[in-house]
Amino acid sequence: MSAQHSQGIQTLLEAEKEAAKIVQQSRQYRIQKLKDARSEATKEIEEYKKSKEAEFKAFEASHAGTTSEAQAAVDKDTEVKLKSISDSFDSNKDAVVQKLLDRVVLVKPELHRNLKKVGA
């Protein structure tokens, strides 16, 4: 009976080793599939990215003329406004300086409105 018992145990141990080997192979297979899926996803992402970049460059090229024209119009408008501001500055400079000097030099001494007379 002991020979049958040890042979049964030996068979169980071999079955356990075989099961462990199968589990290990399935883990390896799963890991490999995950790596393959990741690399495939990365390739798809890169292809999509390249296609969208090409699409954007085509869009940008088709609208480049409009952008440069708009920039030229904005630059021209800015120059006109700067010239207007400079002219206004030059024409009003003396008057503003005179008003400032008048305010500083011509002081009317008077009591503050919040000051109350004492003893009255």
Rank of each mutant, 00 (worst) to 15 (best):
S2K: 07
S2G: 05
A3Y: 06
A3K: 08
Q4S: 05
H5S: 06
H5K: 07
S6M: 09
G8I: 12
G8W: 11
I9M: 10
Q10F: 14
L12F: 14
L13H: 07
E14M: 11
A15I: 01
A15K: 13
E16Y: 11
E16L: 15
K17R: 15
K17E: 13
A19L: 11
I22T: 15
V23A: 10
R27E: 07
R27C: 02
R30K: 09
I31A: 03
Q32A: 13
Q32H: 02
L34F: 05
L34C: 00
A37F: 01
A37Y: 02
R38Y: 12
R38A: 13
A41P: 04
A41V: 00
A41S: 15
T42C: 00
T42W: 02
T42K: 14
T42P: 01
K43V: 01
I45V: 02
E46P: 00
E47W: 00
E47H: 01
Y48S: 08
K50A: 03
K52C: 04
K52I: 05
A54M: 04
A54H: 08
A54E: 15
F56L: 05
K57N: 09
K57Y: 00
A58V: 07
A58K: 14
E60D: 12
S62Y: 01
H63V: 13
H63G: 02
A64Y: 13
T66G: 15
T66S: 14
T67P: 03
S68N: 09
E69Y: 12
A70E: 05
Q71H: 12
Q71A: 10
A72L: 07
V74N: 02
V74M: 03
D75L: 03
D75K: 04
D75M: 01
K76G: 10
D77F: 08
D77G: 07
D77A: 14
T78I: 07
T78E: 07
E79N: 03
E79V: 00
V80D: 06
V80A: 11
K81V: 12
K81E: 04
L82F: 09
L82D: 03
K83T: 08
K83L: 10
S84H: 14
S84Q: 15
I85E: 07
I85K: 06
I85L: 15
I85T: 09
S86K: 14
D87E: 11
S91W: 02
N92F: 00
N92H: 06
K93M: 09
A95S: 06
A95D: 13
V96F: 03
V97N: 10
V97P: 06
Q98M: 03
K99M: 15
K99W: 09
L100K: 11
L100Y: 13
L101C: 00
R103I: 10
R103A: 13
R103L: 13
V104P: 01
V107K: 10
K108V: 15
K108E: 14
P109D: 03
P109G: 00
E110L: 04
E110S: 08
E110P: 03
E110R: 05
L111D: 12
L111N: 12
H112E: 09
N114R: 12
N114S: 13
L115M: 05
L115F: 14
K116L: 04
K116R: 10
K116D: 09
K117R: 10
V118E: 10
V118R: 10
A120C: 06
A120Y: 04
